[in-house]
Each structure stands twice: as C-alpha cells, then as structure tokens.
Design a protein around this nucleic acid. Structure first.
Lengths: 144, 144
DNA sequence: ATTCCAGTTGAGAATCTTTGCAACTGACGC
DNA sequence: GCGTCAGTTGCAAAGATTCTCAACTGGAAT
C-alpha cells in the first residue's frame, strides 16, 4: 500500500541546494508543515511554532510561506474571506479539488488533462512551465 | 475580422439576469472596467470612480470586484506583493495561459478539458461550481 | 406614484499580509 | 575557533482586503 501522503521530502536539502539558508525559524516551520495532516493558515502555523520557540514572528511565517511556495514545496489555497491555508506539496505535481463548503482539499492528477494542456499550449506557440488547476466544488447530495 | 477583445458585453443585462441590482456605484464601476485597456487595481478603480461620484467607497469597489469575479465577468491577477489587478473577461468563461516573461494573458477554452474535469469531480463525489485553470508558459523559440 | 423590503452602501473597525529597518546569525574562508 | 557579510529576523508600521452595521435604495407589487 503505497501512500504518497506519507512521504517526508527533505526540504532542508532542497533549500540548501537552492542556496537558501537553514535557520532555526525555518527548520521549525518546515517540521510543522511536514508533520501535519491538515491545512493550517499562517496564524495557526505561527502558534504551533511559538510553542517550540516563542521568539518566532508572524512575519517570518509569512515570509517562509512565500519562499516555499515559490520553490513549489507547498501550495497556497486562498478562500474568499478567510486567510490563505497551506499544505505541503508531495513530490510531484497535483491538481486540486476544493470543497467550497468545508475547505477540504483533495489532490488528484489526470494524465489526460495534462496532455491536453500541453497540446493547447503548443498550438498557441508555448511550452508550459507550470500550471494550476483548481476545481471549486460541492458535495453531491448535500442537504444544503 | 472578428476580435473577441473588442466586444463590450452588456454587463447590466447579465447582472439583472442573475438577479443582482444595478446600482449607481455598480454602473460607474462597470463603465470604468469596460472602457479601460489596462489592468487597474482596486485603489485605481476607486480613484477613477471617485472622480465621477465621490461618495463611492473603497469597500464597494472590492465588493463589486468579488461579485463580478464570481460571475466570471472579470479576472483577478494576484501578483506577489502588490495588490490584485483586474481586467474584464470577454463573454463566457475562459481558461488562461500566462506568458511568464511578458505577463501577457491569452484566453482559451477546451471543451474536452471541461468534460474531463466534470468526470473527475463526479468520481470524487462532487459537482463543480467553478474552476480555475492557468498555464504558466514560455514562448517556444524564445531567445532567452 | 407609493409602499415595501431584501439587497446594497459608506464608514470605520477588524483582519490578513507585506514591508522597512536595525539587530542578528548561518555558512564560508582562514 | 574566529571574523566576515549577505541573508534573515523581529518588531512596528503600512498596505491590502474583508467585515459589521445602521442607513439607504432599486425595482417589484400595488
């Protein structure tokens, strides 16, 4: 039973390779991200980090989130109203289905869709560097 | 020579059909959006609107932007750091290919992809409410 | 034209996120 | 181990966006 969700990528290595320093705050934040199953927002990460080292600032959490997002190590989900929530990317790329009632995020991947995207881009004279596909959906049979 | 970019959709009609009221602030904001070539942010729209009616509030600009975005009448481009910028969508829903070198946005639509999305959502027990597909790409043969 | 009321607004407070800057600290070379 | 310095941090302040709520208003019904 192979489960992609259990992989713990070595972010420190990735960061080092990208020429980015491993600092105490960053290590703590990375630990939190790799050891959680939920999709915490910046404030929640800040609180958890504060329990380990109460000198960490919220700014640093935000800065680290932006850094990791640019590296592709995490995904940001922005819900209308509430704060952005984050989750670690699991190695390869996934697309997302977001439950607009609960905020739950389901990862999926469709080889067919990826292929169609390539075709479309090529026909427009482009090569895809990366992409984002998000389906905002509602559970079928939901007693509204 | 049909060019989608030159159509000026009748947003008032669309809004009315969606059961949404045409108020003075909304009419002014819609006029600004349909008569501009650039991609203004909320503050810029607010300033332009204020010149026409200085009682309009920034809140209303933001609220109207969210409303129009949900309707698919405009697109929001969020740049890291700066405020979101908006541009009118042209008629029906489109997906986007963003040139990561120039920031140019190309609209496209693939019936096949939309269909696959529906299938995926359904197989996960969901109905799609709306979706976002963005391809970040680079022109082929670009002398980097 | 008048009434009515759910939808909308403006103002300001609240919330979320980024930024400026002085102090601090990893990582590298010695 | 020690010095160095660009990268990083914490804090406070600014910036961006949403929310609360009482007052207002479009447009349907009369």
């Amino acid at each position: 039973m192979k489960n992609i969700m259990n992989q713990k990528p070595d972010y420190e290595k990735e960061l080092r390779n990208a020429g980015i320093r491993i600092t105490r705050p960053r290590r703590i934040i990375l630990d939190i991200l790799t050891s959680t199953e939920d999709h915490p927002d910046a404030m929640k990460i800040f609180h958890r980090a504060s329990e380990i080292d109460d000198s960490i600032s919220l700014s640093t959490v935000y800065r680290t989130m932006n850094l990791l997002e640019e590296m592709g190590a995490i995904h940001r989900h922005a819900f209308s109203g509430g704060p952005s929530r984050f989750e670690q990317a699991h190695g390869e790329h996934h697309d997302h289905l977001i439950d607009i009632d609960t905020g739950a995020v389901i990862e999926f991947k469709s080889e067919k869709i990826e292929q169609l995207q390539e075709e479309i881009a090529r026909s427009l004279g482009y090569d895809i560097v990366h992409h984002r596909l998000e389906l905002y959906a509602r559970k079928i049979n939901r007693s509204s």
